[in-house]
């Protein structure tokens, strides 16, 4: 546990010192969502209808944009090999990286979404459900994304490749998250969808950790 915290602190310190990355993710997220009223028209009814989907699709894209920096820097300067050589299990490193990734992207995305709810005319209860789905869903994105980021280390055009690998695997999260908010806005029970999102997260924890660790091992060989 202390190793995990140490690794996590390293990641967070790096993220803070390198600064603007997570701000840029949030900036992209807000800007991309703001484009949609120009694309589909400013009628409040339509915007409120498509708001959960818009917020979630753009959250997926924003989370994906920040994935290539997850392992790339450590891979290039060689510190990844040193981290692999430490006695701590590699899954622990992955867990720390993923947690740091979520803290620097998933959490800021959640913080920015109330603003977007105002822009998109989403009412307060729906916003609450949207935030809950983001809270349960974005860690899954970080976990699955970590597998993609680890697999493309050393590949040609890795950044573009990640999207092809990871986006199809994001689809279930998108479906259930938007389903929960849609159900809530129509006055239906929505806890079932949230429970499935939670189940997907629980499944993604072992899968993401083991697969990322395996991918990192073969990348560092």
């Amino acid at each position: 546990m202390s190793r995990f915290i140490e690794l996590l602190r390293r990641e967070l310190r790096l993220a803070l010192r390198q600064g603007s990355d997570s701000m840029m993710v949030v900036g992209f997220f807000v800007l991309a969502v703001i484009l949609f009223p120009f694309g589909i028209g400013p009628e409040p009814g339509i915007l409120a209808r498509v708001a959960p989907g818009l917020v979630w699709v753009n959250a997926l894209l924003a989370a994906m944009l920040s994935l290539d920096r997850l392992y790339q820097g450590d891979y290039e300067d060689g510190s990844l090999e040193l981290l692999i050589l430490t006695p701590a299990p590699l899954e622990l490193l992955v867990a720390a990286k993923v947690t740091a990734h979520w803290l620097t992207t998933g959490l800021p995305l959640m913080a920015a979404s109330p603003l977007l709810a105002v822009f998109l005319n989403l009412d307060a209860t729906d916003l609450g459900v949207l935030l809950l789905t983001l809270a349960v869903g974005t860690p899954t994105l970080s976990l699955i994304g970590s597998v993609g980021a680890a697999l493309v280390l050393g590949a040609r055009r890795g950044g573009v490749l990640i999207s092809l690998l990871v986006l199809p695997l994001f689809i279930p999260v998108l479906i259930f998250a938007v389903g929960a908010v849609d159900a809530a806005s129509h006055g239906f029970p929505w806890t079932g969808q949230l429970a499935i999102l939670g189940a997907i997260l629980l499944g993604a924890v072992p899968l993401g950790l083991y697969a990322s660790a395996a991918a990192l091992k073969q990348a560092a060989e």
């Binding site: 597998v147 697999l151 493309v152 590949a155 690998l165 199809p168 695997l169 689809i171 279930p172 997907i200 499944g203 899968l207 697969a211 395996a214 991918a215 073969q218 990348a219």
Partner: peptide
């Protein structure tokens, strides 16, 4: 790398 991806994808296919 692609072998790892294939296995991860296979686990995800029923979920998708």
């Amino acid at each position: 790398a692609s072998a790892i991806l294939a296995v991860v994808g296979w686990i995800n296919v029923p979920i998708i």
